[in-house]
Design a protein around this nucleic acid. Structure first.
Length: 610
DNA sequence: GTTGAAAGCGCCCTCTGCTGGCATAGA
DNA sequence: ATCTATGCCAGCAGAGGGCGCTTTCAAC
């Protein structure tokens, strides 16, 4: 067993104990003793110093446990090193953590919380002890969070109490579990994990030591090999390969069986193998996120502090990492685009952008909407698309239609309007609609439909009030408002020189260019002055009636037909061409300024285009 | 063990094109 | 006054730019 060391990281970087794998037989008795001796080296005062010399909020011990040179083909033990971490209560409460379980036992409230990948701790309530807060670093691949529920923690607690009496003690986890709840939990755990229960040993060099070492191994090593957890299998497999390679010739090559990685250097191989574990011993004290190396942690902390050491010489931008600066310079200054598309001239600064671009060639849409048939080529578009799943939008586009929705261009049939629209886009083309009777062509079918009517003479839009027919819906709308809507106030363009009103801007403009003769000014201004006071009186009455009409519109739209009728507004179904209240209101607003100037509706109609 | 470069993932933004509703210029 | 064809606008989606941050890995 390799030596352990305790240190305190500077700059308030916090490090939590890690887990190492260890072959069972590699952990011989003398090595266990060595572990204990190493632990024993940490005197209570040293520990206390280590625990109080860091940040005031969370001083933490640091320890390394080197893997023991192993003989393969043997079941393995896993060492959990538990440490006291002096998190203050405030610090604990401030963290955003998920509560795993709470249990009252013997008047002691035990709270087990998850503080991020691989970090758990146990908090005891009323009792004040060295194990007030115990941090446990554990690989989730080896022991899922579910497996680390109260059963194990009771075992831990039991060990702690016993350890105070005896510095070295082996306790079966199964036995420990039995002390708390016999049988059922044990069986459930075993069944849930599909593994034999583990054997737990605890080693504590000093009664007052904060540190406890748990060695957890399976009771049946062969079964463990047969039924390892997924992550455990990977690591063990890789380790096995590693060991096999080591016995070969002088020029050794280490192959990772988890991935394609190979290396001729043991150190590189070991470093790589750590990427297959969750070994992240460096903890950010600000957000409790963990990292594999100090450098990664430093970069991360810079994101908290706003430190941006890499500054661009060509602009004022600054970045946390050198890579960000390089990328920025490519985007903004050098315009270097190393990633080129083999199918077109597109080139990008980043490989991910090229990958995204290639999907526009392949048509790949990996991001499927869970609520409709839409699929996007990148995550952002799917996220943006999800905004459209509001209630209005859903009824309009994604409601199931019992009736078949047929494609305009082929025989395809859909029951969702959105799917139909997306399908029909595949038929899209430039001016694909060509008239059979003349040379007319257009891009939109609706334009062709309207055009065809000029050949057929069809006039499908009929006014329900006078039976007059029209070829276009908007013509019917205009007709109805003008002749059958008592509250309709037409848009008026008035000459800024004489005040004369026109129904069209072009007519007013034509007039305005000629306007300016004394005759025109005189007639307009004289008329205005003489009648202004009377107009304003009439106007007030008109506005009052208009407000009542608007109210009737609103209530009619809400289904209150009686109110609509009272306001002399036709029922909604009587409005041809789906005339909407909004259209009237819009017109009303548009002419309000004109009305305020003293022009009545009646006058406007009379004055227009004269 | 540390470092820096490169790669990767994710997010947000803008620009652009298409479509349907509606308005309107010109005939 | 009416009709035809087209323009404007808003909503949506496609494509790409730019950056924040993390992870990986070779070199030292």
């Amino acid at each position: 067993m390799a030596a352990t060391e305790i240190s305190v990281l500077s700059e308030q970087f916090t490090k939590i104990k890690e887990l190492e794998l260890m072959p069972e037989k590699g952990l011989k008795e003398e090595e266990k003793d060595e572990v204990c001796r190493e632990k024993d080296h940490q005197s209570p005062s040293e520990l206390e110093a280590a625990c109080t010399s860091g940040a005031p909020q969370d001083s933490v011990l640091e320890e390394e446990v080197e893997p023991v040179p192993a003989t393969s083909e043997e079941s393995e033990k896993h060492i959990l090193t538990l440490q006291t971490v002096h998190f203050t209560s405030e610090a604990v409460e401030l963290q955003d953590m998920s509560l795993l379980s709470i249990q009252q036992q013997d008047g002691v409230q035990v709270v087990v919380q998850q503080a991020g990948p691989g970090l758990l701790w146990l908090e005891e309530g009323p009792r004040q002890s060295l194990q007030q807060y115990v941090a446990i670093s554990i690989q989730q691949e080896l022991y899922s969070l579910q497996e680390m529920e109260m059963l194990q923690f009771h075992a831990v607690e039991e060990n702690v109490m016993v350890a105070s009496e005896d510095s070295k003690l082996a306790v079966s986890l199964a036995e420990s579990a039995g002390l708390i709840k016999e049988g059922q939990e044990k069986n459930q755990l075993a069944e849930r994990t599909k593994e034999p229960l583990s054997f737990v040993e605890t080693m504590s060099g000093d009664e007052r030591s904060d540190e406890i070492v748990l060695t957890i191994s399976n009771l049946n090593g062969e079964e463990q090999e047969d039924q390892p957890t997924a992550g455990q299998a990977d690591v063990e497999k890789a380790k096995s390969t590693k060991n096999q390679r080591k016995t070969k010739g002088a020029k050794r090559t280490f192959h990772c069986d988890v991935c394609m990685f190979t290396s001729s250097r043991m150190s590189s191989f070991n470093r790589h193998m750590k990427t297959h574990t969750n070994e992240k011993p460096h903890l950010c004290h600000l957000c409790l996120k963990t990292f594999r190396t100090v450098t990664l942690l430093r970069n991360h902390v810079n994101t908290h502090t706003g430190t941006r050491p890499y500054k661009c010489n060509d602009c004022n931008m600054a970045f946390v990492t050198s890579g960000e600066l390089v990328r920025h310079r490519r985007y903004k200054h050098t315009h270097e685009k190393p990633f080129k598309c083999s199918m077109c001239k597109y080139a990008s600064v980043e490989a991910s952008k090229l990958k995204r671009h290639v999907r526009s060639h392949t048509g790949e849409r990996p991001f499927q909407c869970c609520q409709c048939s839409y699929a996007s080529r990148d995550t952002y578009k799917l996220k943006r698309h999800m905004r459209t799943h509001s209630g209005v939008h859903m009824r309009n586009l994604h409601a199931y239609s019992a009736a078949e929705l047929k494609c305009r261009y082929c025989s395809a049939v859909f029951h969702e309007r959105y799917a139909l629209i997306q399908h029909q886009k595949t038929h899209k083309n430039e001016k694909r609609f060509k008239c059979e009777h003349c040379s007319y062509a257009c891009k939109q079918e609706r334009h062709m439909t309207a055009h065809i009517r000029t050949h057929t003479g069809e006039k499908p839009f009929t006014c329900l009030s006078c039976n007059k027919c029209f070829r276009q819906k908007q013509l019917l709308n205009v007709h109805f408002r003008k002749y059958h809507d008592a509250n309709f106030i037409p848009t008026v363009y008035r000459c800024c020189k004489c005040g004369k009103g026109f129904s069209r801007w072009s007519n007013m403009h034509r007039h305005s260019e000629k306007c300016g003769s004394g005759e025109a000014k005189s007639a307009a201004s004289g008329k205005g002055r003489r009648t202004r006071k009377r107009k304003q009186t009439i106007l007030r009455e008109a506005m009052k009636g208009q407000k009542e009409a608007a109210k009737g519109w609103k209530e009619a739209a809400n289904g209150d037909e009686a109110a609509a009728e009272e306001a002399s507004i036709p029922k909604r179904e009587q409005f041809p061409g789906e005339m909407l209240p909004g259209a009237c209101g819009e017109t009303t607003a548009r002419v309000k300024e004109d009305v305020d100037e003293g022009v009545t509706c009646e006058m406007l109609l009379n004055m227009m285009d004269k």
